[in-house]
Amino acid sequence: MSISAEHLLSVVRQYWRSDHEFDGKLERSPELERFQTLWEEKLKKMDAWYVLMDELQAALPQFGIGNATATCDASFRCSVYTAREPIYSSQENESMTRRWVVVGCVSILAPVYMVYGVQYDFRGEERIADRVFFDPLPPEMRAPAEVVARKIEARFGVEAVPREIAETRIPLIVYPHEPPDTTLFHALFTAWPESVP
């Protein structure tokens, strides 16, 4: 498959709206109906996703592996976690730690995937900052990201979306994003890339 922003936009238009016509109504939009029907179909094949989790755990035993899938998003998501590590803090009484997560997403809307990273900073147990990284990832995220990408491609036969296409602005609403801030990434994968359980 040749990935183009135009083709992917034509696909996501079937599932996301460009207006607020159905906001506050009991009636669901045709786009939401299609989206929920598609999720019902995809969830019947969830076993393949769990097999991927097992494969990742075997390939990356030093990391925590999690399922970050949420049906409000348009993708299955997996996460590869590090343990928290101490970081510098100017306040001696506060414990500051950092962890990072590599996230693999497989869209339910098109045969495409993307891998990205998130860095979390904590003060005690409180998350005080997060930062999302797309290609190129920081060096410490690259090796596990390559494993995630290889496993996703082998298991699902999907193609990676290049960053420049994922960042294409689209005229659709993927809550909480509205034009001109909505991107193909939001529509194909998740509107909250920093939110990884």
Rank of each mutant, 00 (worst) to 15 (best):
T190W: 02
W49G: 13
H177G: 04
D121V: 08
P180M: 01
N93D: 12
E146M: 07
E55T: 08
V147F: 02
R127Q: 15
G64V: 01
S75L: 01
E126D: 10
T183P: 07
R142D: 05
E194S: 13
R127F: 01
L52A: 05
R77P: 07
R28N: 12
P138Y: 01
G24A: 07
I65H: 10
L38T: 05
R28F: 02
E125I: 11
C72I: 11
P197G: 13
R169G: 03
C105R: 02
D54Y: 06
R150P: 03
E33Q: 13
L137F: 02
L56D: 09
E92D: 12
S107D: 10
E92Q: 13
A58F: 00
P171Y: 08
V102F: 01
Q91P: 00
V51Y: 04
Y175S: 14
V158T: 15
E159N: 11
I3S: 07
A5D: 08
T97H: 04
T182H: 03
S18V: 03
V115G: 11
A74S: 15
Q62R: 07
L56V: 06
K44W: 05
Q119D: 13
I165Q: 08
D73K: 00
T97C: 03
F156G: 09
R77L: 14
V102W: 00
F134R: 09
V101E: 06
R123F: 05
G66A: 10
P176Y: 02
Q62Y: 01
R84Y: 02
E27A: 12
T182L: 05
E94W: 04
R34L: 08
E85G: 06
G66I: 00
V112M: 04
R17M: 06
L8N: 11
H20L: 15
H7S: 13
R163V: 11
M46W: 02
P139W: 01
S75A: 15
R163S: 13
G104F: 00
I170S: 08
Q62L: 14
D23V: 12
S195D: 13
S4Q: 05
F122P: 04
E159T: 15
M53I: 15
V103K: 00
H177F: 15
T97F: 02
D23W: 09
R169Q: 11
V132C: 08
D130I: 00
E94I: 15
F22N: 08
P197I: 03
Q62F: 06
L184D: 05
W100I: 06
H177R: 09
A110P: 12
A191P: 07
Y113R: 12
S18Q: 03
I152W: 02
Q91E: 15
F156S: 06
E85C: 05
S75F: 02
P162A: 10
P138G: 12
L60C: 12
L8S: 11
K151S: 14
G66S: 13
S10R: 14
D54E: 15
Y116M: 10
V101W: 00
F134C: 10
M46V: 14
E146V: 03
T69D: 06
R17Q: 10
A68D: 14
V12T: 10
R123I: 04
V106P: 12
E92N: 03
A68S: 13
